[in-house]
Design a protein around this nucleic acid. Structure first.
Lengths: 221, 221
DNA sequence: CCTGATTGGAAACAGTTGTTTTAAACGTAA
DNA sequence: TTACGTTTAAAACAACTGTTTCCAATCAGG
């Protein structure tokens, strides 16, 4: 290994540029020149741009899933068969999300990337994330199921994704929103601040009354 | 005008491809070949790809803002100075969003485009939307302010964007989510179905209890 | 009929993209 | 030293991008 590891410098630069401008809008030459690394180094170490993108995600998702599984293990041990309250589950998830990228202040980047993974329909990425992220999400939503026994399964499925949308949308567009908020209300909003505001909203959303039964309709889509 | 209007055919094709693959991933040749239109026609009628993108948005936003302003006019006339309930405001917005693209079953496309406008950082697009969309959003959030007098301004600002995130995220990723839901719960979910599920969640989110006061912290970001 | 705006076809432009190749250097461990 | 993995440099590759241009064909309105 030479200097500060070419691989690491590529990943560090790539994740920032990807988060700022998206995948298609970030060229390998953008990355390598800003990282002061040879162009060929990307294909040498990662094989292709696709693999680079996946590697950027893995660097976040691998430690995240590991820590989250551990945190859920502790939770299950502590509650010993009893139902874990919804608030505790959400709190644990939030804490894990905050812990993982903490060392580089890159929660913003992490969230932007998650948002891109959803909106930027890169097929290979969705598959890659499903594989790495799927099992822990299944486990988590099963615990949420136990914590919200009155909620029909379909309803809980949708509400979990409603909440996911709120979190990803807000945190990934944080910079823009923060600017507006700061300008209009003169109040600086930190990420921890936002999560504090998020908590009661998310809990209320999950515990909202059930919708009225569906009206029969003619249309399909 | 010849045949079915080249301009219209370009817009119809462009909006679908943009919604499916994003802006950068959709080339003018993709559009013109699928629309069976000459490549040069885009630059002839729209001037540039940027202008094409803005035109695609205008075709949705222009009628939307117009109808939404009218709907709010009627609401204010009907309530004659009295406070319009939050549920009614949200209901009105939802109805307008559903009405506008109804003729082409393209609500999905509309929402995908809105999601892209946020995530895909195209600077010019954000400005363009802010100009066309800003005034009606300001008017709407002022009415929401009157409907939720107990909510501090900052808190309402954030909660409105939480809700916006839920709606855009869910509806723009609808196809993927619908597939999962259908597979796991064997239940087809229409857009109207989703809005029915969305309503109590959104109302509960807006009316959630206030968060506990902020803890003093060391960090900034 | 003629004029001017609209289309189609085709080619070319200059620029960027991801990827590959060849070369020479460098570091480390055997 | 030899050998191997790493890194740089530079160039080239074919493919694709948005945009422009030229020309012939089509069309409607005055």
């Amino acid at each position: 290994m030479a200097q500060t590891d070419t691989v690491t410098r590529i990943l560090d630069t790539a994740e920032v540029l990807f988060a700022e401008r998206g995948f298609a809008e970030t060229s390998l030459r953008n990355i390598t020149s800003k990282a002061r690394v040879n162009l060929a180094a990307v294909n040498y170490h990662f094989g292709s741009k696709k693999s680079l993108i996946q590697a950027v995600f893995s660097r976040y998702l691998d430690p995240f899933t590991e820590r989250f599984h551990l945190a859920l293990d502790e939770l299950e041990a502590h509650y010993a068969g009893q139902v874990i309250p919804l608030e505790v589950l959400l709190e644990t998830m939030a804490r894990t999300v905050l812990e993982v990228p903490a060392e580089r202040n890159s929660l913003k980047v992490f969230m932007r990337l998650l948002g891109l993974a959803y909106s930027q329909a890169q097929g290979h990425l969705r598959r890659h994330i499903q594989e790495e992220y799927g099992s822990v999400f299944t486990r988590f939503s099963e615990l949420v199921r136990l914590a919200t026994p009155d909620l029909p399964d379909v309803e809980r499925f949708w509400r979990l994704h409603f909440v996911l949308g709120t979190v990803i949308f807000t945190l990934s567009g944080l910079d823009a929103l923060r600017d507006i908020a700061e300008k209009d209300y003169g109040e600086h909003t930190s990420v921890r601040d936002l999560i504090r505001r998020l908590r009661p909203v998310v809990v209320a959303a999950m515990n909202a009354p059930l919708p009225e039964p569906a009206q029969p309709r003619a249309e399909a889509s």
